[in-house]
Design a protein around this nucleic acid. Structure first.
Lengths: 285, 285
DNA sequence: CTCGGCCATGCCGTGAGACTATCGCCGATT
DNA sequence: AATCGGCGATAGTCTCACGGCATGGCCGAG
């Protein structure tokens, strides 16, 4: 059939990311000619040209774009399979939950308490993940469950249960022109400078100015205090609010959901039991 | 990192499916000792035992279950990457739509007509897929879009737009005890013998008797005429009804949706344009 | 007790893929 | 305009990982 070894995929992804055979070879700890040959083999096997090479530059051909994208998926699936197989061996004693610091809408302690009352409780290891890679942790098996935000996180390959639905608020410096309102609208914010959230696709109006790149709410708040930007955040992230900032509800912003997510094909009781406890605790709160 | 070559995965999947090294080796066209060694390498690399071997039998260890499942996913992802890369090369002139014969709720001709009016029309190739593998066709790139039924088909990895929502009807022999009703309920059907749909997880009441295994509606209808079973089908599959059968609405059955599905990460205009035409045509019907 | 089915082991041969050295192209520098 | 240097491709050699063959060991069936 369509043979394509994971090694070759890794090679190609490295080249496609670096757009430079030398650097990619170094990253892969192989020599550059080997990499050149491997990519050419790949191209002839697939029967398409993946890269446009000049002697100065390397660029992705259309088929290369496709392979970069789908190849990454495939590599993730392979390493997820490996990781999950390893874990399946030692019957798991700990449940690994990945969260973003401060982003639990104060629900986590209730969830953990509810889970502790379950009959088959296991120790819960809490991992901290960055803005973008918590979903990855679950997909590749480094964690069992994650707290994520819909519609911000990429839920591909994950199932989830909603824990809370909350409105979103604009975070403003006190002297901002909109700070005197009791609430604002997206239209009011359309001309504002909004931060670019690292790893999150741009969701603001296309005409809005893109401000500083930030990775988390703490950085965003800092930038707002400096007057460089304003931000729209789920309400729970706005409390307690920094004394030098104010927040106003954004009447028409899509709601944001805090969800508990797990790998789509994870049927372990360990996980099901935690989900049940979490949904229960969140419903009660 | 977690190296695991696709070749090894294929070997393992073959053994796990056959539960027999000799047959698996034959299927892979390699000799049996090579396969034995490959699997042991895999086990030592992963550090877990995948198979329980006696000299008579081979059985899956828990980690083996995990690897069989996730490994299949990974292999699918890899061959999908290969397939889609090949397709990306030659800019595609045909749109490939996979349907199940007779399962288009009479919408297809309208959809094709609407699509033909689009500015960037391409030729549409219609493929026929079995009950269970139409979604697979889309996932691995053999087709671009599929007509599927929610909640029966497995939508993993696919996005979809709903074309119609329809009630479901019980198909009965005319002399059936329920045939005199004008409508029936799921409770009425709880004790009936229902067919097992090949490749579809059992959705009937757990106490219902499981009847003959069938692969499509035509087979199911035949079995109903023989008095072996009764079935619950989306209404559109019941028209025109065979003269020797009757159908009655099932008042409380979950509705069934005919959807147009495509690969989650397919952003090609070719596909978007067809989706738009189909949704438009279905809304108009 | 023997036979036969089945997986494991040992040994050997081969070829895919890695390495080193080197070439050829082309843009940049002076 | 000539040279240099960066980068990818090519050539030739080597090696070791993986596959094949022969065989051993285990165990259930008859």
């Amino acid at each position: 059939m369509a043979e394509l070894e994971t090694r070759e995929l890794e090679y190609f992804v490295a080249v496609a990311e670096e757009l430079h055979f030398g650097r990619a070879a170094a990253r892969l700890s192989i020599a550059q000619p080997a990499l050149s040959k491997a990519i050419r083999r790949l191209e002839s096997r697939l029967g398409v040209s993946l890269l446009e090479r000049s002697s100065r530059h390397v660029a992705l051909a259309p088929a290369g774009e496709a392979l970069l994208h789908h190849g990454r998926n495939a590599l993730n699936a392979v390493s997820a399979a490996a990781e999950k197989t390893r874990r399946a061996g030692d019957q798991q004693t700990h449940l690994r939950l990945v969260i973003k610091p401060g982003s639990d809408a104060n629900l986590l302690s209730g969830i953990l308490a509810a889970y502790a009352r379950q009959p088959d409780t296991r120790q819960v290891d809490i991992l901290f993940g960055g803005a973008t890679d918590r979903a990855e942790h679950v997909r590749d098996g480094r964690a069992d469950v994650a707290l994520l935000y819909v519609p911000f996180d990429d839920m591909t390959g994950l199932d989830h249960e909603t824990l809370t639905v909350e409105g979103r608020v604009a975070i403003l410096p006190p002297d901002h022109r909109l700070a005197s309102r009791t609430q604002v609208t997206l239209a009011d914010l359309a001309r504002e400078t909004l931060p670019r959230w690292k790893g999150v696709r741009w969701t603001g109006a296309p005409e809005a100015r893109q401000g500083p790149e930030v990775t988390d709410a703490a950085e965003a708040l800092h930038m707002i205090r400096l007057g460089r930007t304003v931000a729209i955040l789920p309400r729970s992230l706005a409390e307690p609010m920094h004394p030098d900032l104010v927040y106003r509800p954004v009447a028409d912003a899509p709601h944001s959901e805090l969800v508990l997510a797990w790998s789509q094909d994870d049927r372990r009781r360990l996980v099901a039991s935690f989900i049940a406890a979490a949904v229960d605790a969140a419903g009660r709160a």
